[in-house]
Design a protein around this nucleic acid. Structure first.
Length: 823
DNA sequence: CTCTCCCT
């Protein structure tokens, strides 16, 4: 029983108790929109725990963070006058506290996915609550999609309640086809001041300057949002040097807990406080007594690139809802002010809602989770934001490589991978290590790979140094926060795989072998001339520092790498024994055309992915492959490779003109682009004897093209669009056709056509030629499309001019009865 | 100059 009447608690959410109860009695889905501080997370589950429709089943509430899950469960238990683990419990990684009596379980996201996996129908659950859904974490999105599927297919009575502070409500409510219950928050007004745009390079200086101004002109403590540790440290140095009598605290995730507490704890008497924080202060940590927020408008996020299968950290503009949430931190206890380091104009073009993690995350685990559920095509689920196709394809590919999937279906190996609480690559390594007898080592590597680097980058790239550090820390010789977290994770793997601690010396080759299981595409081979550069099996070039211990190894097994530049940077790797690569070496015949390297070649390569170990000329190869290779080169660079001369172009233009004029006659598209694209069809029979680029030049293109037309069409072409036309002197003069079917041009000297009454034509008299009339010296004198009118009008003007310039020629008054001449 | 946050 509750220790007090929940309706008498002084929190805004009390006002919606009855409405929430009423909706959930009738409907199975509900959205609750309540800002921070409304009291929804603690009170709503308690008010609902005895509803009839639950039929004695449990309430599961999903929290994005372990600490939040634990403290919320604790508060609820206090309100019930109980201990945690009785009516209210929690389940998080490394720690759970539930019993048979538990009716409300607060769990973190990974746990819910696990629950849905072991029992698709979650039979003993009556209500799932998604708290802080606006954070749009990957797991929350997946869990909602799966819970929804379960509700529709197996459990129509299962209730879902989505709770969120700022959210794209219309989209969510139309997707879930559910009602929205709105709660007030407890928030004081925050005045927004736009302080003009900044640039990233000057951020520490500019934000420090702004803070100094605020300290002089405003009351209360100040919270500054900066993108990362680097900016925070620089800003801290400036402020400590220039601001006297003010306490400055940094606050970010990597800080030891005692220093985090110092920043969060209420102010020491008499002194004002400035906290410089990352986005950690947006949601995870609350600082008491803040009256002024300074927001730089940037944050760092991890983005996964499916084409390289790598994640990298990027600095991005925050969205409007995140900016509002940051500003809200100034109005928890009294009215406040928020300075935004951007302009109103910049603000208007910011995106409304934060990017859901599913858009830019590595989806390997997601695809595997769905496969375990029996869903091979993620599009079959209803998503608030569908996962991107490229990332799904990359994940599916990888899972096939790891043999977790076969033809899109989960394998028994895939199920085993899914049982382990880590990325599928690492789970695959852990399982394969059992066969190699290297499980102990693998548990250490797995834990190191998923946590931050416990040594600085000054330690070099050798991952074996990290393993040794972990082993020393277990012997109590050294220690730090990261190492103890790594050991916690390693311990969980040891327990699951049933092995003991191994603190012996490490054999780097064993490490290398294991890393290859996790990252097969990152096997790296020293480039010739070894300047610490390596080519990886996926084709990318990477480098180690010149002085690194591993810089002169022939082979590396690379774990983490950054590919921001064209030559990537290796962060962690191990030496690799080439003998361990034997099973991965594949014989690949390469039949290709490379114009720069002299044309055609056929070789047999021994390779590991893109790394070529050995290359020998190939005596016998499939002729069809050769044709394909040349043809594909021709389609790309054919205009330069072939002898594409004026003759060919004239022939193309003749056919193309007829294609334009006589649409009923079915003339083929012989434009250059069409011909190059279809070259395999019409040109490839001539490739047999081709070896070098010169051989391609020797092909008589016009002849080949001519023959590609049917005999009838060849004849028709000569008849309708002849290459040349005979003029009265008997000269055969070339007609200039155009590709677009424009009127063809006949350039001819005037004296050669005396006696020609009418304009000459082609295409059975349907197309008159445009005459370019020339002087005896082939200079243009007149253009006409109507010869008859020329003779009776313009001719007399032209005659005068020509007579002056060419007095020895005959320029008759009656040109139609004059004999033409070629003189 | 890699280092935001978080989860099984």
């Amino acid at each position: 029983m509750l220790s007090l009447d929940p309706y008498k608690i002084d929190l805004p959410v009390v006002a919606i108790f009855d409405e929430v109860k009423a909706v959930l009695k009738e409907e199975n889905t509900l959205i609750v929109n309540a800002p921070a501080g409304a009291g929804k997370s603690t009170l709503l589950p308690l008010v609902l725990m005895n509803e009839d429709w639950l039929q004695g089943k449990k309430i599961i509430m999903l929290e994005p963070r372990r600490l939040a899950a634990k403290t919320i469960a604790l508060r609820m238990a206090q309100l019930l006058n109980e201990k945690v683990g009785e009516s209210v419990g929690y389940r998080i990684r490394f720690d759970n506290c539930v019993s048979d009596k538990t009716k409300i379980e607060v769990v973190t996201e990974g746990i819910l996915t696990r629950m849905l996996q072991s029992d698709n129908a979650i039979e003993n659950v009556g209500l799932v609550i998604f708290d802080e859904f606006h954070e749009r974490s990957l797991f929350a999105d997946v869990a909602l999609a799966l819970a929804r599927e379960s509700q529709q297919v197996l459990r129509p009575d299962l209730r879902l309640m989505v709770m969120s502070a700022t959210l794209n409500l219309p989209v969510l409510s139309s997707l879930l086809k559910s009602r929205v219950v709105q709660s007030e928050g407890r928030q004081y007004p925050v005045e927004i001041k736009y302080d003009g745009d900044t640039d990233l390079m000057m951020l520490p200086e500019l934000s420090a300057r702004l803070v100094k101004k605020i300290i002089q002109n405003e009351d209360g403590d100040v919270l500054v949002f900066l993108p990362g540790e680097g900016e925070i440290k620089k800003c801290e140095t400036i402020l400590k040097r220039t601001l006297k009598g003010v306490l400055v605290y940094p606050l970010y995730g990597q800080l030891p807990p005692s220093k985090q507490m110092a920043a969060i704890m209420p102010n020491r008497e008499g002194k004002r406080k400035v906290v410089l924080a990352t986005s950690i202060a947006e949601t995870s940590l609350t600082i008491e007594g803040i009256k002024v927020v300074v927001d730089c408008g940037l944050s760092r996020t991890m983005r996964f690139n499916p084409s390289t299968a790598l994640s990298k950290l990027e600095t991005v503009e925050i969205t409007k809802d995140a900016a509002d949430q940051r500003a809200g931190r100034a109005g928890r206890l009294s009215p406040g002010v928020c300075y935004r380091m951007w302009t109103k104009a910049t603000h208007s073009r910011l995106r409304e809602h934060r990017t859901p993690e599913i858009i830019e995350a590595d989806l390997a685990s997601l695809v595997l989770d769905l496969a375990v559920w029996g869903i091979s095509n993620p599009n079959n689920l209803i998503w608030l934001t569908p996962p991107p196709k490229g990332a799904i394809a990359q994940a599916t590919d990888l899972l096939h490589q790891l043999e977790a999937l076969e033809d899109g279906r989960i394998t028994s190996h895939g199920k085993a991978i899914n049982q382990l609480p880590c990325h599928p690559r690492i789970a695959h390594m852990l399982i394969m290590a059992q066969e190699e007898g290297l499980t102990e080592l693998a548990t250490d590597i797995a834990a190191i790979l998923e946590e931050r680097d416990p040594l600085g980058k000054e330690a070099g790239i050798d991952i074996n140094l990290r393993i040794e550090a972990l082993r020393k820390s277990r012997k109590g010789l050294i220690g730090n926060k990261i190492l103890s977290r790594i050991e916690k994770v390693a311990g969980q793997y040891r327990k699951m795989l049933n092995v003991e601690i191994d603190n012996s010396n490490v054999d780097p080759y064993e490490t290398g072998l294991l890393l290859v299981y996790a990252y097969p595409e990152r096997i790296a081979h020293a480039k010739p001339g070894n300047n610490a550069q390596f080519k990886m099996a996926n084709g990318a070039i990477t480098a180690a520092g010149h002085k690194d211990d591993l810089a002169h190894e022939a082979w590396l097994a690379v774990a983490h790498v950054n590919m921001r530049d064209s030559v990537g940077k290796i962060f962690t790797a191990s030496a690799l024994n080439p003998r361990d690569l034997a099973p991965m070496v594949k014989e690949k015949d390469q039949v290709e055309w490379d114009t720069k390297r002299g044309g055609f070649s056929a070789v047999r390569n021994l390779c590991v992915g893109h790394i070529i170990l050995q290359s020998k000329p190939l005596q016998y190869y499939d002729e069809a492959l050769k044709i394909k290779a040349i043809s594909s080169a021709v389609s790309k660079e054919g205009e330069n490779l072939l002898n594409w001369d004026k003759e060919v172009i004239q022939w193309q233009n003749r056919v193309l003109s007829l294609r334009k004029w006589n649409t009923d006659e079915d003339w083929p598209d012989v434009s250059t682009s069409a011909l190059l694209e279809s070259n395999e069809e019409w040109l490839s029979p001539y490739f047999n004897s081709v070896k070098k680029p010169e051989d391609l030049k020797k092909i008589n293109l016009k002849e080949v093209l001519q023959h590609h037309l049917s005999f009838e069409k060849q004849q028709l072409l000569e008849e309708l669009a002849p290459e040349k036309i005979e003029v009265p002197t008997g000269s055969k003069i070339k007609i200039q056709y155009h590709a677009n079917g424009e009127v063809p041009v006949l350039p001819v000297r005037l004296q050669e056509i005396f006696g020609w009454q009418d304009t000459p034509t082609v295409n059975k008299g349907k197309v008159s030629l445009l005459m370019h009339l020339l002087s005896p010296g082939f200079k243009p004198v007149q253009i006409t499309g109507d010869l008859r009118s020329f003779w009776s009008n313009a001719y007399f003007e032209v005659k005068k001019e020509l007579k002056a310039r060419y007095p020895k020629h005959k320029w008759p008054d009656d040109p139609l009865n004059e004999k033409p001449n070629r003189k």
